[in-house]
Simulated assay, not measured.
Amino acid sequence: MTETVLEIKNLQVAYHTDHGQVQAVRGISYQVKKGETVALVGESGCGKSASVKPIMGEKEANQIIKSGEINFTYQTENGPQTVNLLKISPKIMQNRIKGKEIAMVFQDPMTSLDPTMKINKQIAEAVKASHPEMNKDQINERVLNLIETVGIQNMKVVQNQYPHQLSGGMRQRIVIAIALAGNPSLLICDEPTTGLDVTIQAKILNLIKDIQKSRKLSVIFITHNLGVVANIATYVNVMYAGKIVETGTSQDIFFEPRHPYTWGLLESVPDINEKVDELPTIAGTIPDLTQPIVGDAFAPRNKYALNIDFKKQPPMFKINDHHYAATWLLDKRAPKVPIPAVLQKRILKMKGAS
């Protein structure tokens, strides 16, 4: 069996605000195995980023971890070791885990790069922090190797430039190079292609996919766009209002989606072969997470909602051994609601292309 690198159990994260306590993550559980890419997908504000910050030990002043475990397994000289990242000291997190075993690529590379420092020095700093035993020549060799790894051809020129002299796509490649400096076993990508044009976006996605395969990296990929993860994710967790509402393999989610929210996300993905005046959207907004939620959080926006949706939260119904969805439509007593015709047509087209 493939070894589990990360296991999250019933994680609940809240934030104190002037308007009350925001229940940002309301009890999520999932695993990431070695060499897999697990996508967290959902609209802005559904809890994706809030759920991964504790993995990196990112503690904000108003953040409360209400419950849960984040068990991370990594290799040591004495073999594999598993730690609960919520229980280890900030010192161990900083010196042993962060940047070395777990690294992160953020949405805006300019927030990750120092505008006053040349690219070569920034990558070198990351290498030194992860490999203090290396001498200057070894560090320089490692820097060039990392620049080459992220697909930059004119590396001699790029390493002597400042971030503002590079394009957005090039900057994101440098951020990925810095993230790889410590040879992490888990890479978290938080909306890494947002803001890039579609051509560059595709190149960055292919780069992450190639690096993941060549290094057997485990990847958590966060995005609001299901279309982005179609070709890179092993498993997809669809999040809504701080919970996972559907989970399955990429094939499960793209070819056999069962939750109305997943249907809406898939319908919202642009199709270059379809001529439409206006893209479909999901009506309404995410609920106020400072208030108690009764029933299914998606019910007010769900045109297929049943009476029970407004009274009782649905459990995760099993569709197959790796596909589950939290919707009362899967209850054997519920009326049979087919996948929307527009989406069925698109799925048939995708199946034909695959």
Rank of each mutant, 00 (worst) to 15 (best):
S214R: 12
Y30W: 09
P338N: 11
P132R: 02
V38C: 03
D288W: 15
L187S: 07
L180F: 06
L40A: 07
D252Q: 02
I200L: 00
D309G: 15
Y261S: 01
I286L: 15
T199Y: 06
Q12T: 13
Y240H: 12
L187A: 05
G20K: 13
F106L: 15
L6D: 10
I119W: 00
S89D: 05
P109N: 09
T223L: 01
Q31L: 13
T234K: 02
K213L: 11
L226V: 00
I147C: 11
K213S: 12
A334K: 08
D288E: 10
H224M: 03
Y240W: 12
F255T: 13
V52M: 00
A230T: 08
Y74W: 06
G248I: 03
V22G: 01
E77Y: 05
H323N: 04
S51P: 10
H19Q: 15
D210R: 14
A241E: 06
D108S: 13
T73C: 02
I70N: 08
N135T: 00
K48T: 10
A283D: 03
Q159E: 05
P109F: 04
T37E: 07
P335F: 10
S49L: 09
N237T: 01
T116W: 04
N273C: 13
E148I: 10
P270C: 02
N206D: 15
P287H: 04
I92M: 13
V13T: 01
V175D: 02
N237Y: 11
L6R: 15
P300M: 05
E141Q: 12
P270Q: 08
I178P: 10
G57W: 01
L265V: 01
V41Y: 02
E141K: 14
L329F: 07
N154R: 10
H323F: 04
N307H: 09
E246H: 02
L330M: 11
K345E: 05
E278G: 07
A24F: 09
I55Q: 00
L330I: 11
C46P: 08
Y15N: 09
G35M: 07
K332E: 13
I272K: 13
I152M: 03
N120I: 14
K9Y: 10
F310V: 08
K53Q: 15
A341F: 11
Q201G: 04
T290N: 13
V127D: 07
P115I: 01
I232W: 01
T37V: 15
V238A: 02
N273S: 13
W328Y: 10
L196G: 05
E274L: 00
Q12P: 15
F298E: 10
A24P: 06
N307K: 11
T76Y: 03
N302Q: 13
K332T: 09
L217Q: 00
D271P: 01
I211A: 05
E43K: 05
E256H: 11
M134F: 04
Q313G: 08
I222S: 03
A50M: 09
A202W: 00
N237F: 09
I244M: 15
R346L: 07
N307S: 04
L306V: 12
V219Y: 07
Q201V: 06
T249I: 04
H224V: 03
V342D: 07
M104H: 08
S354N: 09
V32N: 15
